[in-house]
């Protein structure tokens, strides 16, 4: 049995974009806090990017005991080489026992790279974390086989234990402005030639008003049952009423009705909103694989035998063109009475 006396503390990597933290990093402070409490160690936020001081303060307000910040021109935007260099340097210096990262695109780019460099174990897309205080081993639970199976993984022989968690799996703790903690600034220089990739351009696939599917609390999705691309308008309206995001089945994307960025499913995005409303979507297994972790699923379809009704908590059989406008109207009325 290994004892890793020199590996201590729980680290949360807070990914940032243009000086703003990605919500998932802050969410992970919640399970991180629990792990830290269980083994009596510190919860430390690691921030690489710009505006790190402010983000560090936020992290502490959300539960971190301390923060480590790395900034510098090379770290202003994400690159595998710069970030993996910085993070592995920090890990080798401070030796955390556990490291959590958000399973965003960049998180899933970075985590395996550093896990390999550090020759340690990584468990991706975890949905639950538990800690065995005696051994300090984290039990990571994650889905496999498209969500058909759950596996509980541990990394007993290597440190740090690394895991990624998708946005929306955990919720941020209460923001406590009164919390204080040390912020350590680490200077990690890196030669420019070391960074082998260069971002030439960033193209938003959704307008600024549109909500990011992977972070959305409510998603309203449209499928082939809409009949016409312009009918996505009612999907947008229903999403707006909830302040949610618009999703889509593969059929609508393949038909060119909406961009792939909105596709929910096996070859699209996996989402875990609180509420998922599927409109005119038959519920092919590939689609369900992308949304079955939603807390509540509502399906609206005129075919009573549509497979979507097997996973829906509330299945409304009928014409979505009649149902959705009334649904929107009713919700609006409720908002007004509140």
């Amino acid at each position: 049995m290994h004892t890793f006396e020199n590996y201590k503390h729980i680290w949360i990597f807070i990914e940032c974009q243009a000086g703003t933290p990605k919500k998932v990093g802050l969410e992970l402070l919640s399970p991180g806090r629990e792990l830290a409490n269980k083994c009596g160690e510190k919860l430390i936020a690691v921030i690489i990017g710009e505006n790190t001081q402010q983000i560090a303060k936020d992290a502490i307000s959300y539960g971190a005991d301390e923060a480590i910040a790395v900034t510098g021109k090379a770290y202003h935007s994400y690159s595998t080489d710069a970030y993996s260099h910085a993070l592995t340097t920090l890990v080798e210096k401070y030796k955390p026992s556990v490291l959590l990262l958000g399973a965003t695109g960049n998180g899933r780019d970075l985590a395996p790279r550093i896990a390999c460099r550090l020759k340690t174990g990584l468990t991706a897309d975890c949905t639950a974390l538990a800690m065995d205080e005696e051994s300090g081993n984290v039990a990571w639970t994650r889905p496999a086989f498209g969500g058909n199976l759950m596996a509980t993984i541990s990394c007993p022989d290597c440190r740090p234990q690394i895991g990624t968690v998708r946005p929306g799996v955990f919720r941020c703790a209460e923001y406590d402005r009164s919390r204080t903690g040390t912020v350590i600034e680490e200077d990690i220089p890196i030669e420019p030639y070391f960074i082998r990739t260069k971002v030439l351009e960033i193209i938003q696939s959704m307008s600024k008003e549109e909500v990011n599917l992977e972070e959305a609390k409510v998603i309203v999705s449209g499928g082939r049952g809409l009949g016409d691309p312009k009918n996505f308008v009612i999907i947008q309206q229903l999403a707006d009423v909830f302040g949610g995001a618009v999703g889509s089945s593969r059929a609508a994307v393949d038909a060119g009705w909406i961009s792939h960025a909105h596709q929910v499913g096996q070859t699209g995005k996996t989402v875990q909103p609180q509420l998922y409303i599927a409109c005119g979507i038959s519920g092919a297994i590939q689609h369900v694989a992308g949304m079955s972790s939603a807390d509540t699923i509502i399906a609206i379809n005129k075919d009573p035998d549509a497979p979507i009704f097997k996973v829906a908590d509330y299945g409304v059989v009928g014409d979505l063109f009649e149902i959705i406008p009334v649904f929107i109207e009713e919700i609006r009325r409720l908002h007004e009475t509140l």
Binding site: T104, G105, T197, I202, I203, Q204, S205
Partner: peptide, 11 residues
Amino acid sequence: EIDERYEKIET
């Protein structure tokens, strides 16, 4: 193609 954007990258 990640999250809600596209990045054009040179390597």
